[in-house]
Write a protein that binds this DNA or RNA. Structure first.
Lengths: 121, 121
DNA sequence: CCATAGATGAAAAAATTTTTCAATTAGAAG
DNA sequence: CTTCTAATTGAAAAATTTTTTCATCTATGG
C-alpha cells in the first residue's frame, strides 16, 4: 500500500478491515460497517484499492458489489431466489489455464455458477 | 419470451439482435447499435431479459456490461491494460460441479481470469 | 378487424457517482 | 518531538445513471 506513495489512513484501514469481514458486499453494506468513513472517501478508497488490484468490483445481477481480489473465488447464484453463496473447492483444471494458444499470466480467477439452489427446486 | 405473456416488440428484437452481435457490451455500446430503442425501454428490456435469465449483467472492473447468458462464458482480463478477451475452451472439471456437499442444479457459468496479457508482460 | 393487456417514450424524479476546493493529517526530515 | 509538505479527507455541488410516472401506442388473441 505504501509502496506507491499512498498513506495508510484510518479510513483506508477501516475499509480493508470491513472488506475482509465478508465478500461481495454492496456499497451500502460496506458503508454501514464503517460509518466513520465519508461517502466520497469510500468511493475513492474502493477505486484506489481496485486500481492496486486489491479489490474487485463485480455484479452478480443486483448491482455493484466489492470484494477482496483473492486468487480463487467461487460463487453460486440461484437464478430463482437470487441467493448468493460461496464455495472453496476449486473446480478449475489448472492444466487448461491459460487456454492453449494464449500468452497470459494468470494471477487470480472468479467463477460464477448459475442455476437453482436446493431450496428452490 | 411469449411464454410469460410478454410481447415480441421490435425494440426487444433489436436489443436481442445487438446482444447477439457481441458479448459484454456497455449500455452505451448497445444503445449506439440500436438507436431506434429509447433509453427507458432499453433499461426495461435489459431488466426483463435479465429476469428471464436470457441476459446477464456483469462488471469486469469498468462499470456494468451486458451479455447473453450462454451456458459457458470465459473472460480473460488484463489487470495492467484492462483489456478483455474471451476464450472458448472450458477449463472447468465437470466432476467438481456443483461442489460435493451442495444440492444445486447448474445451468450455466461465467469465469473471469485475471492476470497480465502477453503484450503487457 | 376489435379490444385490451402490455409496451413505449418523454419528462421528471430519484439514486448513484464524480468533481471541486478548503481544511486536515500521515509520514518524512530535521 | 516539532516542522513541513504532499497526500487525503469531507461537504457541497455537479454530473451521470437509473427509475418512475403517465399519456399514448401496439402486438396479439378472439
Amino acid at each position: 500500500m505504501r509502496g506507491g506513495g499512498y498513506k495508510a489512513t484510518p479510513q483506508r484501514r477501516a475499509v480493508l478491515r470491513v472488506l475482509a469481514e465478508e465478500q461481495h458486499q454492496s456499497l451500502e453494506e460496506i458503508r454501514a460497517r464503517c460509518p466513520e468513513v465519508g461517502l466520497v472517501t469510500l468511493y475513492r478508497t474502493l477505486d484506489l484499492l481496485g486500481s492496486l488490484g486489491i479489490v474487485r468490483r463485480l455484479d452478480l445481477g443486483d448491482g455493484p458489489r466489492y470484494e477482496l481480489a483473492e486468487s480463487h473465488h467461487h460463487h453460486m447464484i440461484c437464478e430463482s431466489c437470487g441467493g448468493i453463496s460461496e464455495f472453496d473447492e476449486c473446480p478449475l483444471d489448472p492444466e487448461l489455464l491459460p487456454p492453449g494458444t494464449v500468452d497470459f499470466e494468470v494471477r487470480a480467477h472468479s467463477l460464477e455458477v448459475y442455476g437453482r439452489c436446493g431450496a428452490c427446486r
